[in-house]
Design a protein around this nucleic acid. Sequence first.
DNA 1: CATATTATGTGGATCATACCACAGAACTCT
DNA 2: AGAGTTCTGTGGTATGATCCACATAATATG
Lengths: 280, 280
Amino acid sequence: MSLPEGRKTARQRLIISELALSPTVRTSTLAQRFGVSIETIRRDIEELTRRGIVDRTYGGASGRQLGTQPNFSDRDVEAIPERDQIARIAASLVTRGAVVMIDTGSTTARLAQVLAARDEPMTVITNGLPIASAFLRTDRVRVVVCPGELSPREQGVYGSETCGFVQRFYADIAFIGASGLTTEGPTDVEMEACWVKRAMLERSERRVLLIDSTKFGRRHLEVVCPLSSLSDIITDQGPEKEIADRLAATNVVLHTEEPGYGDGGWNYKLPSQNADLNRE
Amino acid sequence: MSLPEGRKTARQRLIISELALSPTVRTSTLAQRFGVSIETIRRDIEELTRRGIVDRTYGGASGRQLGTQPNFSDRDVEAIPERDQIARIAASLVTRGAVVMIDTGSTTARLAQVLAARDEPMTVITNGLPIASAFLRTDRVRVVVCPGELSPREQGVYGSETCGFVQRFYADIAFIGASGLTTEGPTDVEMEACWVKRAMLERSERRVLLIDSTKFGRRHLEVVCPLSSLSDIITDQGPEKEIADRLAATNVVLHTEEPGYGDGGWNYKLPSQNADLNRE
DNA sequence: CATATTATGTGGATCATACCACAGAACTCT
DNA sequence: AGAGTTCTGTGGTATGATCCACATAATATG
């Protein structure tokens, strides 16, 4: 053996390259192909998963989600399952053919992915580059991009151009994000971004805030709007009593449950809030 | 609300949208989330697999070939070295602090990469998502995004919104792409895209066409503008005599080598503007 | 060379999923 | 409303996968 490369390393390399071709691989198949025991492959996959290179699945492994841009680098990866749940709930509020405004942000970007996968007729008005990009593969979705100055931090545009543009439209539903939520309302760090959010809220019938529970109680530079300006808040778990009370007093609907199927009709409530140790 | 959508259809739609978020899903997880039996989910997945929408895996399903973007990425990989050379030449025309309009397209996207790597003070006005995204990691570049309707094919926006917006500005230099070049001028397949290009040309001091040599002679739906409306054409190798003569007659500068001009294709000396940083 | 370290294989208990057939439920259509 | 079709759940069994502990092989290390 003149190979300077250990058999283990070579095997793992092959596993990775196999995943470049097919979205998933099976432990048993690999074991047979490499002529090693299943247990060995399992340990390989376990190691690669620990190193974050592949994702482990039940019978094998899958390539790591490269579908989305590795943007929002800092905190975007933090609460993925929670954000996905929020995105699913949010998507269930969107009816066929609706006009939807979507603020830029990492959570709203997940929503865009879900909506894009549905590829139903609808119109999306957005100031977020990742949101617009998510719809590049769709046929039936009409996407209107707002003008403005690009903010690398927000990965979207803002400014008076943006606000003025948004105000020319009227939407059925608006989805905004925020970096904090207090009893006064959603808060954000970026003044200009707040103005865009406000413009979207003003011009939409239904006004939905997407926010994960890690942001409860955080107060930032500026309050976007009073709680009463919202019609819905979607989050992964209920906020503390103080905020919840305030919401109840102002007719804001709080969504924390996964959507059942069918938006208008029956919401299937799940027996348990699933806790989902989903290793994928 | 009263959509004639069966539970089964709704469920399958949710499965698909779930696969937009995560590369794989598990039968058991879905069954629990939807409150149906595992067997039902298995039948859903089986059907979706038969229809070619998802791939069945051992414990569930995985998304089908989500690796590549359909339209633009295919073309984007085609003539990479040529496009990079074009992009480097183009970048050398951009002076510090300039106001630059950049049309959407795969070649102009490479230009954006080069400019973004330089990260010098300048203002970019663009209708292309990949162009805007390229500047997300820069500090000193001010990026203005045009409004308009998103075209998946062009990966950018167009429409009267876009044109009207562009016409409000005045730039030092504009870079446009095209899908063909004839003696009449650059041609393109997309009517709306042509209008945006024209608007950019009208509002810029210097008007530069980026086009690789594979597109010479191709005539498409519409002529963007006469050759004489351009001030520069940047390409990888000189066009046939007919076009070259026409260019010479109309004062259009043809760039095929890095400024400084050499022959033999080897001297890629970079100008003072130092495009050396272009590869990260 | 002996010894530590790392890699790999084996067997069995446990759990998850696949598969099949049938029955009841829900829906469709006249 | 009734008959036919489609959809869904249940139970049982077979198969495959996980996990664990330990043994053995391969490789490094002094």
